[in-house]
C-alpha cells in the first residue's frame, strides 16, 4: 500500500542523510522524497512516499521516530489529505498546429506556459500525482517531450489536523 509520511525534523546538516540512510540500511523503498525548511527556520518538513504493508510501515515510523533529529512523523495517507507535486515540461512545437495543441492541453490541465523560446515551450503543471502522470501521457501522444523535471509529492492533512 502507498503511504505518505510527513516528517518534521531538525533543520540540521546530516538530518536528511539519517532519514535516507535509514531507508537504504533497512531495505525500505522510497518512491519520492521532498524536503524544505518550514516557517520555523529550525525545522524542516519532509514528505516521503513509500510502498509497504501495514506492519512494515509501522516499523518504518518507529524507526524514524527513534532518530534524534526527527521531531514528528505522521502517515497522512491515513487521513483525508491533499497531495501536490510540481512539474516542469520542456517540449518542442514543430508546426503552428502543434503550438495550438500544446496550449490547449496545457489549459485543460490548468498548467501554464512559462517560457517560449524559438518554438520550445516550458510548461508548469501542479497537482496530484495522477494528474501529472496524465498530463505527460496526453502530451506524449502528439508531441516529443525534451525534458521533464518534477518534485516529489508534498502533502498536508485537510481541516483542522496539523502535524
Amino acid at each position: 500500500m502507498r503511504h505518505t509520511l510527513s516528517i518534521l525534523m531538525e533543520n540540521e546538516s546530516g538530518a536528511l542523510s539519517r532519514v535516507a540512510g535509514l531507508f537504504s540500511a533497512r531495505g525500505y523503498n522510497i518512491e519520492s522524497l521532498n524536503v524544505a525548511v518550514t516557517e520555523d527556520p529550525t525545522l524542516s518538513r519532509l514528505t516521503l512516499v513509500t510502498h509497504a504493508n501495514e506492519q512494515v510501515v509501522e516499523q518504518i515510523m518507529k524507526q524514524l521516530n527513534k532518530l534524534i533529529d526527527v521531531v514528528k512523523v505522521v502517515d497522512i495517507a491515513g487521513n483525508s489529505h491533499i497531495e501536490r507535486g510540481l512539474m516542469l515540461v520542456k517540449i518542442k512545437a514543430s508546426t503552428i498546429d502543434s503550438c495550438i495543441s500544446i496550449k490547449q492541453i496545457t489549459d485543460i490541465f490548468r498548467g501554464r506556459i512559462i517560457d517560449v523560446n524559438e518554438l520550445i515551450y516550458t510548461i508548469q503543471v501542479t497537482g496530484g500525482m495522477d494528474k501529472l502522470r496524465a498530463f505527460i501521457g496526453t502530451l506524449q501522444q502528439e508531441h516529443t517531450i525534451l525534458e521533464v523535471v518534477r518534485s516529489g509529492a508534498v502533502g498536508i492533512m485537510r481541516g483542522k489536523h496539523t502535524l
Binding site: Q55, Q59, K62, Q63, N65, K66
Partner: peptide
C-alpha cells in the same frame, strides 16, 4: 524501552 523493538520480529 524501545517502541521499535515491539512487534518488529514477532507480533
Amino acid at each position: 524501552i524501545d517502541p521499535a523493538s515491539i512487534s518488529k520480529n514477532v507480533v
